[in-house]
């Protein structure tokens, strides 16, 4: 356990085997495992908004499953385009390291999320306003995404020094990931769990498009 957390510490500091330019081979599953664990921790806390009965434990469990699912499913959908773009830009030889940078950004995002989990729980303690809880979570995710992006930039700096086109690949990834991720988050809702609705894995209504919903909110109609 302590050993595992030391790994996380080294990852956050970007030292030793997690140094962006490290030559040491470390098991490939470290980063995915970190995403899985830490995103699930935050998911659990996220789903504990209306934690009043045993019945509501299920929301905790569902959200703990769904947050990592959100991150991984979005990654899988965006991957083919990313690989083709990298190949076309002549960066295929660095593909392994590009993937490492992307997974690092997601792992960073998950760890920051998990570290903010107590704050979220505290927020839930202080208010029972559902909309407020949603907004707070949106803020936490935005912040964690920013932190993840900074971590990815640490890895990408090495790659960009090697070839300037890596910058294009990085931005293309961020744009597609955000575009698909927002819709994925909308599809997989509820994460927080409205007190007025029964607990469910997915909302019991037809799937809809997040962007259309946002546009309706803005433009009416």
């Amino acid at each position: 356990m302590v050993d595992a957390l030391l790994h996380v510490d080294r990852f956050l500091r970007g030292s030793d085997d997690f140094h962006p330019a490290a030559k040491v081979r470390r098991p490939w599953w470290w980063l995915p495992l970190m995403i899985l664990c830490f995103a699930a921790i935050y998911g659990g806390f996220m789903g504990s908004f209306h934690f009043v009965s045993i019945e509501r434990t299920r929301q905790v469990l569902y959200s703990a499953i769904k947050v990592p699912m959100l991150l991984f499913a979005t990654t899988i959908l965006c991957m083919p385009g990313f690989v083709v773009l990298n190949t076309l830009l002549g960066l295929r030889d660095d593909l392994g390291e590009s993937l490492q940078a992307i997974l690092a950004s997601l792992a960073g995002l998950s760890i920051v999320l998990a570290s903010l989990a107590p704050v979220t729980r505290f927020w839930y303690f202080s208010t029972s306003n559902y909309r407020g809880a949603l907004l707070f979570n949106a803020g936490v995710f935005a912040f964690a995404t920013l932190a993840g992006h900074m971590l990815a930039t640490r890895y990408y700096r090495v790659l960009i020094a090697r070839h300037r086109y890596h910058r294009i690949a990085q931005y293309a990834w961020v744009v597609t990931y955000a575009f698909v991720g927002i819709q994925m988050g909308w599809t997989l809702r509820p994460f927080v769990g409205s007190p007025d609705m029964p607990t469910s894995f997915l909302r019991d209504e037809p799937v809809s498009n997040a962007y259309i919903v946002i546009m309706r909110l803005i433009f009416g109609g």
Binding site: I76, L88, V207
Partner: peptide
């Protein structure tokens, strides 16, 4: 070929939005 390869690689994203969207203009 480059054109359709890039388009096909974006196919999964299109498929996902197809599943989620009812709006034709979108």
């Amino acid at each position: 070929v480059v054109n359709v390869t890039v388009a096909a690689s974006l196919g999964p994203i299109l498929a996902f939005f197809t599943l989620c969207t009812a709006s034709y203009p979108f």
